[in-house]
Simulated scan of single mutants.
Amino acid sequence: MISVFIVFAIFILFYVNKMTNSLCIQKEIPEENQHKVFRTINVLITILLISSYLEILYT
């Protein structure tokens, strides 16, 4: 089960990063601020994925 969830998590992170890149291009966010946007979104998505995995694991 963990291997399926890891593949799913990698797919989600890749797709969210793709959408974040589109957001940065559309909103014309400066290059120096894009790193902060990507870091913030990746940390939040990682927390969401970990909490959802723990919820699946313990229910």
Results as ranks from 00 to 15, higher is better:
45 I>K: 00
12 I>S: 03
18 K>F: 12
41 I>N: 02
30 P>S: 01
22 S>A: 11
42 N>G: 01
47 I>S: 08
17 N>Q: 11
44 L>C: 10
15 Y>P: 00
7 V>H: 10
40 T>G: 04
21 N>E: 14
54 L>D: 00
15 Y>V: 07
2 I>H: 13
31 E>S: 09
43 V>S: 05
46 T>D: 03
26 Q>F: 11
37 V>K: 02
9 A>M: 04
31 E>N: 08
15 Y>L: 13
6 I>E: 14
23 L>H: 03
4 V>Y: 10
48 L>Q: 06
50 I>G: 08
42 N>A: 06
55 E>K: 14
15 Y>N: 13
50 I>R: 05
21 N>D: 14
52 S>M: 14
17 N>L: 07
46 T>R: 04
16 V>A: 07
55 E>I: 12
23 L>T: 03
30 P>I: 01
44 L>F: 05
3 S>E: 15
32 E>P: 01
24 C>K: 03
37 V>G: 03
54 L>N: 10
13 L>H: 05
40 T>R: 08
14 F>S: 11
30 P>H: 05
22 S>W: 05
37 V>L: 04
29 I>W: 03
49 L>S: 00
59 T>L: 15
18 K>V: 02
36 K>F: 03
25 I>E: 13
11 F>D: 06
52 S>F: 09
19 M>V: 07
52 S>V: 07
19 M>D: 06
41 I>A: 01
3 S>P: 04
32 E>Y: 05
56 I>P: 00
30 P>M: 01
35 H>N: 10
57 L>P: 00
9 A>Q: 06
36 K>M: 07
14 F>W: 13
23 L>E: 05
54 L>I: 12
55 E>R: 13
7 V>Q: 14
51 S>R: 04
46 T>N: 10
38 F>R: 05
4 V>H: 11
3 S>M: 14
33 N>C: 02
54 L>M: 14
35 H>I: 08
40 T>C: 06
22 S>C: 06
29 I>F: 01
10 I>Q: 11
44 L>T: 06
7 V>L: 15
27 K>N: 07
42 N>E: 07
54 L>C: 12
14 F>A: 12
5 F>G: 01
28 E>T: 03
57 L>N: 11
51 S>I: 12
39 R>D: 04
26 Q>T: 09
55 E>Q: 12
41 I>W: 04
14 F>E: 10
58 Y>L: 15
11 F>K: 09
10 I>Y: 10
19 M>G: 00
28 E>W: 01
42 N>Q: 10
5 F>C: 09
56 I>F: 15
10 I>H: 01
8 F>G: 11
52 S>G: 02
51 S>A: 13
30 P>L: 02
30 P>R: 05
45 I>Y: 03
